[in-house]
């Protein structure tokens, strides 16, 4: 399935935000000059086809009493997959990527206490194959805006 120009407009609107009105898809349909039914059915198709990762709310973890950090782990080359699988078991670890520069695994942890964060860190440090672990926390988040403008 290829994205046509209608799909791209629809996905751009959907990425920008869903309004807090009783019929938000009707509002989008009006903007696009189509029926609400067309918007709903096409969105279902785009979702099934895998273009949309998630439709929903994205919360600011800091403001919900949670705190997020980025962790980078240096790992023995032949044990990366094994360590990645163990790391993925934590529900607090939401993203985990393998990257190309020295530290093999980069992952985020969102926790609601220092105690829990420290527990996760020490458990990961103790995993076989983990050489070192950096806790790269942030003070200033300048931008978080994941929107892919489709043309």
């Amino acid at each position: 399935m290829e994205l046509n120009s209608f799909d791209k407009q629809l996905l751009n609107i959907l990425q920008a935000g869903i309004q807090f009105v009783p019929k938000p898809y009707e509002t989008m349909a009006n903007e696009l000059g189509v029926s609400e039914e067309q918007v709903l059915s096409r969105l279902q198709e785009l979702k099934s086809a895998g273009y949309i990762r998630k439709v929903g709310a994205f919360f600011n973890s800091d403001k919900l009493g949670y705190s997020g950090t980025l962790l980078a782990a240096k790992i023995e080359p032949d044990r990366v997959a094994e360590v990645a699988a163990r790391i993925n078991e934590y529900p607090e670890i939401t993203h985990n990527y393998q990257r190309s520069g020295g530290y093999e695994l980069w992952f985020t942890a969102i926790t609601n206490s220092d105690e829990r964060k420290n527990q996760i860190l020490s458990e990961i440090r103790a995993l076989p194959g983990v050489i070192s672990l950096l806790d790269l926390y942030s003070q200033k988040k300048y931008k978080i805006n994941v929107q892919f403008k489709l043309k």
Binding site: L3, L11, L14, Q15, A16, G17, I18, F20, A49, G50, Y51, I52, R53, K54, V55, G56, A57, F58, F59, N60, K63, L64, I144, V146, F148, L150
Partner: peptide, 21 residues
């Protein structure tokens, strides 16, 4: 929640590989 920043965004995040990025 949106106004106070608790809710960062209500909307979609796409799979960037699938949409060409």
């Amino acid at each position: 929640m949106k106004e106070t920043g608790i809710l960062r965004k209500m909307g979609a995040v796409l799979r960037h590989m699938e949409v060409g990025f």
